[in-house]
């Protein structure tokens, strides 16, 4: 395996300042963002995502209001970077082309348009707008475990047709195993245009972040999402420093300095965490049941308020096949479950 991937160049894309906003309840300060982004820049990370955890326009009662606006974060971070570029995430239905234009005006390099893995046709206007603005434009197929490789290809072809230059297989629930990742990425690689790049976004809920990312590279992915210090929704994203160490051992070229990023993780990211982002019974449940990773904190808060164990709430959300963005259904589900009377400690409001 070492030989096969040796010499392959992979672009790492840091998530700590976007997906990492979830465990911070979107409260990372502008100063913290600038400091961490500068550390990543110096360590050679080529691309850094900066927005509300739920992307441009995510500031809401539903997902939480961030410490600053997307525009304030982007305008603060982008000018301080020497080599790294900045990306923004946009979920059609939450963010709009107006948000995209604002982010382009702030100087982002990449826009990632994210849809549920079967609903790619809501991304047309945003992908078209991204290309028109001259941005590196990515289609980001979330909860990819819920679609077969064939279905995922059909959706990827739509995004490619709209003009996306890179397509992501996104394991939002941290549910996939390396074989699941490999068959999806390989199928896309086989049928999409050779010039269309492929990417993989993992969550570490089953501890598979690094292994899944390597499986994705073997199958043809050349962009890998990681988060410095593993900061992301659920049990976090693929930990950047661990991924870099593994790549170094395998001869995969990332251009990222292992010791520098491990210092950023240890000295800058870990100190700002409100709690350790790790696999516990709840984040494990996300990966086990295939539930959107950013539901985690909402389920914990619902447990505190309604007395229904977070794990039970998450399992129920999985049974109901909730998709990314349905955070509103967590409180609703908890209330309905509390009313069932099966949870004796319930304090229904």
């Amino acid at each position: 395996m070492t030989n096969k991937l040796s010499g392959i160049a992979v672009k790492t894309h840091d998530m700590s300042l976007r997906d990492g906003m979830h465990p911070k309840r979107h409260q990372i300060s502008i100063e913290q963002m600038k400091t961490i982004a500068a550390g990543l820049d110096q360590a050679g990370v080529p691309l850094i995502e900066v927005t509300h955890g739920d992307g441009l326009g995510g500031a809401s009662v539903n997902y939480g209001f961030a410490a600053a606006s997307d525009e304030e974060y982007l305008r603060a971070v982008i000018p301080t970077l020497k080599q790294a570029k900045v990306s923004a995430l946009l979920l059609p239905g939450i963010g709009t082309v107006e948000h995209l234009k604002m982010a382009a005006d702030c100087g982002i390099h990449t826009i990632r348009v994210a849809t549920h893995c079967t609903e790619a046709d809501v991304s047309e206007q945003h992908i078209v707008a991204g290309r028109k603005l001259g941005l590196d434009t990515v289609g980001f197929l979330m909860m990819a475990h819920m679609a077969s490789p064939e279905k995922l290809l059909e959706q990827a072809l739509l995004m490619e047709g709209y003009g996306a230059q890179c397509i992501y297989v996104t394991d939002s629930a941290g549910y996939m195993l390396p074989g699941d990742v490999a068959e999806r990425v390989a199928h896309l690689r086989q049928h999409l245009k050779p010039e269309t790049e492929l990417g993989f976004h993992g969550h570490h809920n089953l501890s598979m972040g690094v292994s899944n990312s390597i499986a994705a590279i073997e199958a043809g992915a050349r962009r890998i999402d990681c988060a410095c210090g593993g900061m992301g929704a659920g049990a976090g994203n693929t930990p950047l420093e661990v991924f870099i160490a593994v790549c170094n051992r395998m001869g995969i070229e990332t251009g990222v300095d292992l010791f520098k990023v491990s210092d950023v993780a240890e000295d800058l990211v870990t100190p700002i965490l409100d709690f350790p982002v790790r696999i516990d019974r709840n984040s494990l449940t996300l990966g086990y049941a295939g539930v959107y990773s950013s539901f985690l904190l909402f389920a914990k808060r619902a447990q505190a308020k309604y007395g229904v164990p977070a794990r039970e709430i998450l399992l129920e959300l999985g049974r109901q096949k909730m998709v990314g963005g349905q955070e509103d259904m967590i409180e609703d589900t908890a209330i309905t479950m509390a009313r069932s009377g099966r949870y004796s400690t319930a304090q229904v409001a």
Binding site: N62, G93, V323, G325, D328
Partner: peptide
Amino acid sequence: KAIIIINPAEPPLIMRDTVH
């Protein structure tokens, strides 16, 4: 502010709306 989510579950879910 308005947010729309499209859910592909089968059988199809009945429209849900949350108002804050």
